[in-house]
Design a protein around this nucleic acid. Structure first.
Length: 476
RNA sequence: CGGCGUGUGGCCUAGCAUGGUAAGGCGCCUCGUUUGGGACGAGGAGAUCGCUGGUUCGAAUCCAGUCACGCCGACCA
């Protein structure tokens, strides 16, 4: 199965065959297997460090939220009501007040913030939590949309709009940096149009990645919540001039959906392709003839230890299988570098390196390079770095080749079948609706780095909105 | 939630029209031979055929309901 034949089927095959995840016993739930959870742990590591570097502290808030909290902010409840899971019993008895399982934690954290914030000296309050949330999903897909998923949610409170907006955009930048630097995923960063905003947000910002079928995946969002939740939960502080003032809040999150992004942005017919910085194993050794020549295993173990000491995630595959089986297996699992080591290598004092992607012969098989054992650590370290650059460049080329500026309806319809279209449009929901009905494309974002441009809407001819082009595409 | 489709050992599938108590491949276990691109032979384990009910002497097969999964749509940070 290749991504070109049937993208949806290909995706499911990879998730299953690469041992990433499977369905849980309750509809819409997901079991994340160790190989994928390791990827998530690595992602968490990078993100958590960046959150701390930008002054945030981790905390933990309860899974269960009083039902009444959710209803306090009008837009919020309207948006989330259809997706809530509600607990009505505890210890076999009906609860006095039903509790909802958090779909997101603005409400319960808002409630706590109102208690913790007294004066302007308590601001900004910069929090993050790593947690699971639940939303009823009508059509679950592993990693992309499941009823329960793991994520991080940042929640912050600020003295004024400017400070909160700065935070909102700062964290959006953190997400962009992470996507590019750690996932080799180029993203388009920008603001959501009003119809695509988070329920309860004044503004929503997003990073959008292009998958290999040309569809967009919303990969991270950052929201400026204004004073909506402060009003609902009474988050006020005493200002320097002794006035009781509403705080401005933000929230921002990324989830295990990012694992889906990695699969769909980099994968190919052979299977998963993992960018080195988030690869569970960066290097896998495949010993050859180890049963006849015990030194082979010893040398593999020794070299792996050297690599580990240098900070490389190396693994030695001691399984009792033939080498060819292991080659295919690790390619399916997307390991960046494979090192073959056998009697021939021992004699020559070398190992044989094959790269998962980007260094293939005319038949699509990896070109194997001999590398001196003494030079292995340096070579591998460099290879991993250039491999990352290669994946990023490849994904960027793909995205750019499938993004077009268009100015007519016909061009637009053709373009969003396979990629993204950047257009001038009037910004109305009616126009968005018309586009969606005809093409199933929706506005992905108003890119931050697009130049100012105005003109006539390509659908209605009315003056364009937002002062620049907007990217449309089909999305997950 | 609407339309279409699919549920048979861990995985893929045959059997179903014309009911008679489940077959093959892969995988798994044991032994031997093999090992630089998915090995081979011999022996072996493993399924109340998604679930519930109905029809029948008898149901994987027919009927009804239900659950799960997939695709499309609607919905969805």
């Amino acid at each position: 199965m290749t991504p070109e034949d049937d993208f949806a089927q290909w995706y499911q095959d990879i998730v299953k065959k690469a041992e990433l995840a499977e369905n849980g016993p309750v509809r819409g739930t997901m079991v994340v297997r160790p190989y994928a959870w390791r990827i998530w742990e690595l992602m968490q590591g990078y993100l958590d460090q960046m959150f701390k570097d930008t002054g945030h502290e981790n905390a933990y808030f309860p899974l269960l939220i009083p039902e009444s909290y959710i209803t306090r902010e009008a837009d919020h409840i309207e948006g989330f009501a259809p997706e809530l899971w509600t607990v009505t019993k505890g210890g076999g008895r009906d609860l006095e007040e039903p509790a909802v399982i958090r779909p997101t934690s603005e409400t319960v954290i808002g409630e706590m913030m109102s208690k913790w914030i007294q004066t302007h000296r308590d601001l900004p309050l910069l929090l993050n939590q790593w947690a699971n949330v639940m939303r009823w999903e009508r059509r679950p897909r592993l990693f992309l949309r499941t009823s329960e998923f793991n994520w991080q949610e940042g929640h912050t409170a600020h003295a004024d709009r400017d400070d909160a907006m700065e935070e909102t955009l700062r964290m959006l930048d953190v997400y962009e940096t992470f996507a590019v630097r750690d996932m080799a995923l180029p993203v388009v960063k920008g603001e959501k149009t009003p119809s695509e905003r988070f329920p309860g947000a004044e503004n929503t910002y997003t990073i959008e990645g292009m998958m290999r079928d040309g569809k967009a995946l919303q990969s991270g969002t950052s929201h400026y919540l204004g004073t909506k939740f402060s009003e609902a939960f009474d988050i006020r502080y005493q200002s320097k001039t002794n006035e009781r003032t509403l705080a401005h809040t933000t929230s921002w999150g990324v989830s295990t959906r990012l694992i889906g992004a990695v699969i769909m942005a980099h994968g190919d017919a052979k299977g998963l392709v993992l960018p080195p910085r988030i690869a569970s194993h960066q290097v896998v050794f495949v010993p050859v003839m180890a049963h006849k020549e015990p030194k082979v295993s010893d040398e593999a173990d020794r070299l792996a230890k050297e690599l580990k000491a240098a900070g490389v995630r190396a693994h030695v595959d001691h399984r009792d299988q033939k080498p060819g089986y292991k080659f295919n297996d690790w390619e399916l699992k997307g390991v960046p570098l494979r090192i073959e080591i056998g009697p021939r290598d021992l004699e020559a004092g070398t190992v044989t390196i094959a790269q998962r992607l980007g260094r293939d012969d005319e038949h699509g098989n990896p070109i194997k390079d001999a590398v001196a054992m003494g030079d292995l650590v340096r070579h591998v370290t460099e290879r991993l770095a250039t491999y990352h650059d290669f994946l990023l460049a490849r994904a960027t080329e793909f995205r750019d080749a499938n993004t077009k500026q268009v100015d007519t309806w016909d061009e637009f319809v053709a373009q969003v079948k396979t990629g993204w279209a950047s257009v001038l449009y009037d910004g109305t929901e009616a126009t968005e609706q018309k586009i969606k009905e005809a093409t199933s494309a929706t506005p992905r974002c108003i890119p931050s780095d697009y130049p100012a441009e105005e003109g006539a809407c390509f659908v209605t001819g009315a003056p364009s909105a937002f002062g620049k082009r907007v990217v449309f595409g089909r999305s997950y």
